[in-house]
Write a protein that binds this DNA or RNA. Structure first.
Length: 562
RNA sequence: GGCCCGUUGGUCAAGCGGCUAAGACACCGCCCUUUCACGGCGGUAACGGGAGUUCGAUUCUCCCACGGGUCACCA
């Protein structure tokens, strides 16, 4: 039997604080009944991806909907993987998706990350003394012990050392080796500890696991429901040799001290839940509520679902920006995936912010869903269709200035002109839905600009060139931009009728053989000349915006080319 | 391989012992319409398999299959 008190002093001579000092330094939060405290706790190793935005949106909604607190904690416990500037990027990206933190690591006025709130520091690398205080206590209580086996030695003992080779692992042998090794580790004597310490050998602190995997813990996850998980019997690492905690230990200590009520994270954490529960128990902490959110999936080349990973299209939130999706649309899509009754609510409340939606944990799906660009596009079209022409103009312009500079400059050169274009068919109960992304704008309305205008579509062979020419000439002869739309259209009808193309669609449908064609054909002749395309928004509006000179010039060009 | 989670149409999903098994996206057709877009109407399409429990199972239980996740001094 080791003298734990002595061991604790040997291991952590510099740690003088006690757990109660920490409890005093991090007082319980005083929040109204039912208020939830949630957090986003990323490791600063890269960008925010869709799979990360997902649970974070849940955390944000739950906190703010309940009058609680959402805070950001940076889990930079692995210096090797840290990417400079990643944390700043994460915060900014999240902000564009409506995720604002009340507390934690925030970007200060100087553009650098600073702490806001009294539960800091919010960077785990700065909290070593806090973790070590609890670590020391665990040693005192005989719940943790030092392990001087180096990483290299460990690797030799294990048949797995690299993720890539995991498929070739002999799991049986692995488990046995592990077991034996763990038992041996536990036999460490005070003499060995002193000897190693004297040599300056590094150590990790391991938990002394008391679990029996044959026994199950009953547990209720707020989204997964009831489940049974085997108790933990693995002496996992609490403190790495640099004195910095692993995720598990930091999670328990921080979420306790910072008063997290709901731990919201991806379901990939489910397998280590037993460790966390054990840790909370060892430390005498009340366990928070857990919500393990199903993963977003993608289809691999074999048609199987796979977790959406960083490299996949649609994973990096910056992809959406680049592709021209507006954040509102992405949020909207996320909400439809998160709560099955969201779309229904949206239909009844078309003008409200998604933040007014009563988010319901019970309406969350427990199985992973496939990312669907079709659906995103549809949602996005709806979102954009309700925006004002001013909004759309500004948003398309600023997007284009960044990702399609020439086009952006065109739009910016005459904002009023651009705005008139985007105003076509906007407003009213049945707005046009042409744009799913800002990138769609160019193909939709680029033809308005002579710099971009091109004959994308051509007349079908079946149409008599002479008729086309006659239509265009006839149209030009009577064209007057100041005509109202009825007069304007009547003139077109007259031109067509003279050529044997009936203006009466009903008549035409009743007996197509009686006519050369109809008003649709005539309109098309003009449309192609003016817009270069078979399809366009309302042609009268187009001509009004284009103005007399451009309309005439384009038609004359077409006549000359026929 | 052990453990955990999951499985309703192509996708997202409602359902919570008795229903012709909702709805949305996508797809197809029709209508409206000068094209497109919008809108309207309609259509194709689903409970992974097998045992139980039950008068009756998509719904409850078990087994199997399949899919996913995880097994680090990474989070």
């Amino acid at each position: 039997m080791l003298d734990y008190q002595k061991l604790a002093e040997l291991l952590f001579p510099h740690v003088t604080a006690l757990p109660e000092d920490m409890e005093a330094a991090f007082p319980k939060r005083e929040l109204p009944e039912g208020a939830k405290v949630t957090r986003f706790a990323p490791s600063p190793t890269g960008f925010v991806h869709f799979g990360g935005l997902f649970p974070t949106t849940v955390a944000e909604r739950l906190a703010h909907q309940s009058g609680g607190v959402l805070y950001l904690r940076i889990e930079d416990t692995d210096a090797k993987r840290e990417v400079p500037g990643a944390a700043e990027g994460l915060i900014k990206t999240l902000a564009t998706y409506g995720i604002e933190f009340d507390e934690g690591a925030v970007i200060g006025e100087d553009g650098c990350i600073c702490d806001k709130g009294i539960y800091g520091p919010y960077k785990q690398s700065l909290r070593a003394n806090i973790y070590q205080t609890y670590a020391k206590q665990l040693v005192r209580e005989g719940k943790a012990y030092p392990c001087f086996t180096t990483e290299e030695e460990l690797e030799e003992l294990h048949s797995i050392d690299k993720k890539a080779e995991i498929k070739n692992t002999d799991w049986q042998a692995e488990a046995e080796a592990r077991r034996a090794e763990m038992l041996a580790r536990r036999q460490i004597t005070m003499e060995e500890v002193e000897e190693n310490l004297a040599k300056g050998n590094p150590f990790v602190l391991r938990i002394l696991a008391d679990g029996d995997p044959e026994k199950k813990i009953k547990f209720t996850d707020l989204v997964k429901g009831n489940m049974e998980i085997p108790e933990n019997d693995e002496d996992f690492v609490l403190l790495k040799s640099d004195g910095i905690p692993t995720y598990h230990f930091a999670h328990a200590v921080d979420d306790h001290l910072m008063g997290t009520t709901h731990v919201i994270r991806g379901e990939e954490w489910l397998p280590s839940l037993a460790k966390h529960l054990q840790l909370f128990r060892y430390l005498g902490f009340k366990t928070p509520k857990y919500m393990h959110i199903a993963q977003i999936m993608r289809l691999d080349e074999n048609g199987n679902k796979k977790k959406l990973s960083k490299r996949d299209m649609g994973a990096n939130m910056d992809d959406y920006t680049r592709l021209g999706y507006c954040p509102e649309a992405v949020c909207e899509y996320v909400m439809t995936l998160l709560n099955s009754n969201y779309e229904e609510w949206r239909m009844q409340n078309p003008d409200k912010s998604y933040k007014d939606f009563p988010f319901n944990i019970k309406k969350m799906s427990s199985s992973g869903c496939l990312f669907d660009f079709n659906k995103l596009n549809d949602v996005s079209k709806n979102v954009i269709s309700t925006m004002s022409a001013d909004d759309v103009t500004d948003k398309v312009t600023s997007w284009a200035l960044k990702f399609d500079e020439d086009f952006g400059k065109l739009l910016a050169s005459d904002r009023e002109f651009a705005k008139q274009i985007f105003a076509i068919g906007r407003g009213g109960k049945k707005p046009r839905k042409d744009l799913a992304t800002w990138a769609d704008a160019k193909s939709y309305m680029g033809f308005f600009y002579d710099e971009i205008f091109a004959l994308e579509d051509s007349y079908d062979e079946k149409y008599d060139r002479a008729d086309i020419k006659a239509t265009l000439e006839g149209f030009l002869k009577s064209f007057d931009v100041s005509d109202d739309s009825n007069v304007w259209f009547d003139k077109i009808k007259a031109v067509g009728e003279a050529l044997g193309y009936t203006p009466n669609m009903k008549e035409y449908k009743a007996d197509p053989t009686a006519f050369k064609g109809n008003i649709a054909d005539i309109s098309m002749f003009i449309r192609v000349a003016v817009t270069g395309k078979l399809n366009s928004p309302d042609m009268y509006s187009v001509m009004q915006i284009l103005g007399r000179d451009r309309v005439v010039a384009r038609i004359e060009n077409m006549i000359n080319s026929l």
